[in-house]
Amino acid sequence: MNNDKSISRRGFLKTAAAIGAALTVSPALDKVKAAETALTGARNGSTRKKDGVEYRTLGTGRAAMEVSALGFGCMGMNYNRSQSPDRRECIRIIHEAVDRGVTLFDTAIIYGPLRNELLAGEALAPYKGCVNLTTKFGHEVIDGKGTGRQDSSRATVRRYCEESLKRLRLDTIPLFYQHRYDRNTPIEDVAETISGLIREGKVQRWGLCEVSADTIRRAHAVCPLTAIQSEYHLMHRDVETNGVLDTCRELGIGFVPYSPLNRGFLGGCINEYTVFDTANDNRHTLPRFQPDAIRANTRIVAVLQAFGRTRGMTSSQVALGWLLHKVPWIVPIPGTTKESHLVENLHTQTFNIPDADWLALENDVAAIPVTGDRYNAEQQRQVGY
């Protein structure tokens, strides 16, 4: 390996500060553009650039929402990702993301539970009206603890909405997702409940997570959806074959990939000797993060690193760049607790890679079998495919 050409994640961090100034933008949304969207609607996948930052539109018409091309997943700041910085440092990182042009932040009731919503609400309170803070309902939470059950009954959704508004310090939720499909509540009932909350001004838009194409169609027919959120990255591409992406394209619904770096694995900093905090990191329970699976799947990371080496990209930037290139109505939401990783992720938007190169990368990765399921049996049962 030619060390002069190798671009590792560690090496990138040493030079992150040098490029940081180029990515700094105003935290405020373009209010004129937002007003036009509210009045006339917008087309799913519409894009524009402001101060060097790309913005994309999720959804269509009155369900449309313009956001930064890369969002920010808040979950790992204090839930399911081992050690976290203190509250003050987490808030500083979120503020840094806003200052660098990020306008989409994602949390959920179950993260913590409740603690992540409280953190995100506190951090983004100074930017009220300037960013979109989205959250998710569905996992049953009683006395601050998750039960493992799903509850999207009408009364529960309304109660969760009221409670989230308080924790998030908002007057209205920009985008309210159903986190997991509730087999005891028809999706049409959920859609009608959300429609009522929209009429009352408590919710602006809604979305679904990890559901089938049929469920998307049924929900959208009652109350138009803005976005679908599902896991999607180079090691998990089910939405390309199960009809979800095709349905989003047909109906004009945006798509928000969560865990776009495969829970940090595609960043190249995890190996078979990595120890996960069993008290606050679900990765130790996932088949794909067992030592043998990690050892086998490292071959995939090596492909991303080789691709990036000749293009000045880290493997994280390659993974995010591939997603951004797929279609203009995809908005990944990588999370981090490190400013250097935030800068690294946002810098992905500055690369211009030819279509043929991305296709070659896809083929190279597809030739390597992925070892281990993404979820254990209990978590997989919660997926609504």
Rank of each mutant, 00 (worst) to 15 (best):
K202S: 13
W329Y: 15
E231H: 01
I187Q: 00
T172E: 10
G308N: 12
F265K: 13
T278H: 06
T274H: 13
D171P: 06
R159Y: 09
R158T: 10
P328N: 15
F12W: 15
R374V: 08
Y127C: 03
G312A: 08
L124S: 05
C223A: 14
G20K: 13
V318H: 04
R56E: 08
Y232C: 09
Q204S: 15
A123W: 00
L304T: 12
G264E: 07
C209G: 13
V244G: 14
R263Q: 15
T278G: 01
E36A: 09
Q317S: 13
R167V: 01
V211I: 08
A123D: 05
D355E: 14
F276T: 13
R374Q: 12
Q290P: 08
V343T: 14
M235N: 10
E162C: 09
T348N: 01
L286T: 11
E231K: 01
T107R: 06
L208S: 11
F176K: 00
T247R: 07
K166A: 15
N2D: 15
I19F: 15
T147K: 08
L133A: 02
L324M: 11
S84F: 07
D86Q: 07
F12Q: 10
R87G: 07
G372V: 03
A360V: 04
A191E: 04
V190W: 04
Q204W: 10
M235K: 04
D277I: 01
K50P: 03
L70P: 01
P113C: 03
E200H: 04
M313V: 11
R249A: 14
L133S: 02
T134W: 03
I270R: 10
S46M: 14
V131H: 05
D281Y: 11
M75Q: 09
E339D: 10
F105I: 09
S316V: 09
I91D: 13
C130P: 00
E192N: 00
K33F: 12
L168Y: 07
L245F: 07
H95T: 08
T107W: 07
C269W: 11
L175I: 06
L118Y: 06
Y111H: 09
L261Y: 06
I7L: 14
R374I: 10
T298G: 14
L170I: 05
H139P: 12
E378V: 14
L175A: 00
L197V: 11
D171H: 08
L58P: 06
E250A: 14
S8R: 06
G112V: 02
T47V: 10
R10V: 11
L70R: 00
E36S: 08
L124Q: 02
G41E: 09
K166Q: 14
L23D: 11
T247C: 12
N352P: 02
R169G: 11
T172R: 10
S152Y: 01
T247K: 02
G321L: 03
R48V: 01
A120K: 04
